[in-house]
Write a protein that binds this DNA or RNA. Structure first.
Lengths: 357, 357
DNA sequence: CCCAATTGCTAAATCGGGTTAGCGCCCGAT
DNA sequence: ATCGGGCGCTAACCCGATTTAGCAATTGGG
């Protein structure tokens, strides 16, 4: 089928030198080891003419480095967000000439074990352990064989592994500030979690930190959260029912939804109640899911920087790989990636619409 | 850091035999080569106790098979659909003990070349070339070095590579049949392409084949398409404007939208016009994007079987790898994967609502 | 003119495992 | 006693690179 790969031996023969000589020239160490200009040129020409490319499998065997890293996540399919994270990692890896193995655990520890094993069997240089929504995870035993980084996750035992997560606290502050800047002071409700710090879905870092940021920013402005409703799951249907429930007794001026899918449900509930966004009710949200710009009016939301998270994870991983002896001091550093605001059409000053509050 | 991997030599020493003997036992060829029960047991016990795992890099170097395949796509981030395709491929690969390299070309031929090169440098056993929407592509030169399969794409020159694509023609028939079965005979419009076979976005297999299927199924039932509007891009905003445009002059009883995003736009236009789905207008669509079950009423749609496509591609690839001499007859076979109907709430018989047509 | 120090390259070992040829040993047959 | 043959295992080479040690040839100094 294919006309056998060109090997280093072929290049050496074509250049009339030995294999090691060719190797030295091609690895750039020819100079320091005093290979003559003449030989160097011959080797380089031969390599070029034969289109020689080193076999990375062989190099991997010899040197231990396969120029390959593993990306293990709990799910790849959840949403486009996952794809963006992989995309970021992919591009950062490509810039370093490194390839990515992808694996999915489905949350099954046994699958995870097998997957990590399979990656180590292939001598990966490092591992990225990714979660598709931010949370704390128990670091599996198998990761210690190679440098590793947590992505969108925090270790249950802090300090064991470096982690890269979105800066959710600042995101919460930002969402609150958007409303404050628009002039809102009253009738601000949260949908998805809260209003108290205890009313949060379990194990979600995002819930806790977004809420904390929101409360901090409002508090600093002397504004109090008017109320909030916890959603069992952050899906449109729950946003719909909880918002509908809220509207039975209250008349909000602004909603902070804990993600865009909840916001989508909230839109439906507001529409059913005859309330216009943003004239009657302003809505801010989190994630910047594609639907945020599909629903009308387009949703102002604080974006999860999935692409950047993926890139950053690779950066941190290579720091880790580069560092020979594990420096115990900065072992488990947590890197927070800024969540940018996407300003669209769902926020307006209060009292714009006809009916007063 | 890590306590050096256990090698075959370690196992052999622990069992008190030579390396080749251990290798023979562990590769299952012990029997045919008459290794004694005693030695066999010792080797197996040693391997088990030491937790020996063969180094696949080394095996790859010797045997040429790295138990690794490459998945190269134009974009991974487009949508969750891409993720499902990868997920299907991932699971099928895992069942075979094979790992997946992921790469993204962004449609850039140079990037594609480098990526294929990088994969070949790592001695992949085969390649899957995936497109994130169905279309015909020019097969890049670099793929010939290993078995390859096109996924969600057809080769510009038929017969060069096997391909796996969704059965869009049958999907078109199915969508039409849903309306026919509900009793619709008149006022059926298409949004996204058509009504004529020439009114189709360029290079999209889906556009051509869905439309053909729709026209065939309607034709067989003696029903004529009442009209249609081509969308420049299959996004919600175009669905919105084209449907709005249609409603200015016509009063449709049923819409076949060419995908769910268009359908979402169509919903908005129908809502603006005061028309209820499905009482006034039935809507069928394609893709089964997540939003299909988020919008109200939930959208009946013919699903792109992304997960199955991914699995099938791996199956076909392994057929290809297994086949030693390329059988020229069935070289470029096209495998069509059935698109299943997701029946939801957007289709009803005509004349159900108050106002007669 | 001889010894030492460069200079310029290669032989050989290595990584971890797979594969082939063949070496001793014990047995029975001649 | 000798030969032939099956049995059970191992020596040796291979994959494609890197790396260390060291061999010739040249040059320089005394």
């Amino acid at each position: 089928m294919s006309p056998r790969r060109v090997t280093l031996a072929d290049v050496a023969k074509a250049a009339g030198v030995s294999r090691p000589t060719a190797s030295l020239v091609l690895s750039g160490r020819g100079r320091e080891l005093r290979i003559s200009q003449d030989v160097e040129q011959r080797v380089l020409r031969a390599a070029d003419e034969l289109q020689y490319r080193p076999n990375i499998v062989s190099v991997g065997l010899r040197t231990g480095s396969t120029r390959t890293i593993g990306f293990v996540s709990d799910t790849v399919a959840t949403s486009r967000l996952a794809g963006d994270m992989i995309k970021g990692a992919l591009e950062a890896a490509r810039e370093r000439g490194v390839m990515l193995f992808i694996g999915e655990t489905e949350g099954d520890p046994e699958l995870e074990r097998l997957l990590l094993q399979a990656m180590h069997d292939r001598q990966v240089d490092g591992l990225i352990l990714a979660s598709m929504f931010t949370r704390t995870i128990k670091v599996p035993k198998g990761v210690t064989a190679a440098p590793a980084v947590l992505l969108n996750a925090l270790p249950k035992q802090p300090g064991t592994l470096p982690a890269v997560i979105p800066d959710e606290i600042e995101a919460g502050r930002l969402a609150a500030r958007v409303l404050l800047d628009a002039g809102h002071r009253e009738g601000i409700y949260v949908i998805g979690a809260g209003p108290g710090m205890r009313n949060v879905p379990p194990d979600t870092v995002a819930g806790v930190e977004r809420l904390r940021g929101i409360r901090e920013a409002l508090g600093e402005a002397g504004v109090k959260l008017a109320g909030g409703r916890l959603c069992e799951d952050w899906q449109p249907e729950y946003g719909l029912t909880e918002t509908r429930e809220l509207l039975r007794t209250r008349r909000p001026r602004a909603l902070i939804c804990f993600n865009d899918r909840i916001a989508m449900g909230a839109y439906q509930a507001l529409d059913d109640a005859g309330l216009k966004v943003p004239q009657d009710v302003s809505v801010v949200s989190f994630d910047d899911h594609p639907i945020a710009s599909w629903i009308r009016p387009k949703l102002t939301t604080v974006a999860l920087p999935h692409y950047e998270l993926g890139r950053k994870a690779v950066d941190v991983l290579f720091d880790e790989i580069g560092r020979d002896q594990p420096d115990p001091g900065r072992k488990g550093e947590v890197h927070r990636v800024t969540m940018p605001l996407r300003t669209r059409e769902s926020v307006a000053p209060p009292h714009t619409g006809g009916s007063a509050g």
